[in-house]
């Protein structure tokens, strides 16, 4: 039973990790926290559902969905974020992404109604624990491939440069705007992965990603908001903690279930303010 619960925790954690990574990616490239990341993932999941419902096999629908999500993310950056980035103060981008949250959620409910829908699992015939592990493995593969691209290609180098220091990147001739759009595209694609992984067990409906977004934020903060591997580690930790503590700690009823990852975060941040993997701010002496 413990191992099954651990597997379930890892499966859920992989979903939270993907959305946390999406948050961090969007943040690294534009300095903006995208509150609509979960809803964009939701929209992508609905698109995937629609494709499968119209007859496309699951493993064909998946890459199409990721491509659609990538494009949507790029468009969002171009059309919306580019405009509000330069507005003074941190409030305009926040308001913009919250507005986007409301808009995308309403759009999904309008097109697909609020009826509950089943979403196919990537491994429908496997027993529950194994399916969760396999889903986590799938996520690991995709994220690993993404990491490879980022680490070992010229494009990845440019993206890492922009994420590290956009101004120096500009002065080096890098078209930061295009790279930011790519970064948001990648974030959106990773978010789509999150939705697709979680939908089979959460069931697809317009409120599906709301709770997930909260956990993804927790995971991203836990890992240090500017660290990609931190977000992934944070997501897995939150997923496993949430599942195991809900199952095993009798005194932790559901009332406290969300508290456990949050207490963990506070403890980590007290000891290590930049999060588990985040970069310490460099201070000039």
């Amino acid at each position: 039973m413990f191992f099954q619960q651990l597997a379930e925790g890892l499966g859920a954690g992989a979903g939270y990790a993907a959305l946390a990574l999406a948050l961090v990616l969007a943040y690294r490239f534009t300095g903006i926290v995208n509150f609509a990341q979960g809803e964009l993932a939701l929209l992508a999941t609905y698109v995937a559902w629609q494709l499968v419902d119209s007859g496309l096999p699951y493993w064909a629908a998946l890459p199409v969905t990721v491509a659609v999500a990538f494009t949507a993310g790029m468009l969002t950056e171009r059309v919306l974020i580019r405009r509000v980035e330069s507005a003074p103060g941190p409030i305009s981008p926040v308001v913009a992404t919250i507005g986007l949250y409301v808009l995308v959620n309403a759009l999904a409910a309008l097109v697909w109604s609020s009826a509950l829908r089943a979403f196919p699992s990537p491994f429908p015939d496997a027993p529950a624990g194994l399916a969760a592990l396999a889903a986590a493995g799938l996520a690991g593969l995709v994220l690993g491939a993404l990491a490879l691209v980022v680490r070992h290609t010229g494009l990845g180098l440019v993206m890492r440069a922009v994420a590290a220091d956009p101004r120096t990147a500009r002065l080096s001739g890098i078209r930061v705007g295009q790279v930011a759009a790519l970064g948001w595209g990648a974030a959106s694609a990773v978010g789509a992965l999150s939705g697709v992984l979680l939908a089979p067990s959460l069931f697809l409906e317009p409120a599906m990603m709301t709770g997930v977004l909260v956990y993804a934020f927790a995971a991203a903060v836990l890992g240090g908001f500017d660290s990609a591997p931190g977000a992934v580690a944070g997501g897995l930790i939150v997923g496993v903690t949430e599942t195991l503590c809900g199952t095993y700690l009798a005194f932790v009823g559901a009332d406290l279930k969300i508290a456990v990852p949050l207490v963990l975060i506070v403890a980590v941040l007290l000891l290590r303010p930049r999060g588990l993997f985040g970069t310490a701010p460099v201070e000039r002496a």
Binding site: E8, L198, V214, T243, G246, T247, G253, A254
Partner: peptide, 20 residues
């Protein structure tokens, strides 16, 4: 008994606990 919040994404852990 196990409760959940409307904001929780899933009740997987709770049901597993009830099974135990």
């Amino acid at each position: 008994t196990r409760s959940y919040e409307v904001t929780d994404p899933s009740v997987q852990g709770q049901v597993a606990n009830l099974a135990a």
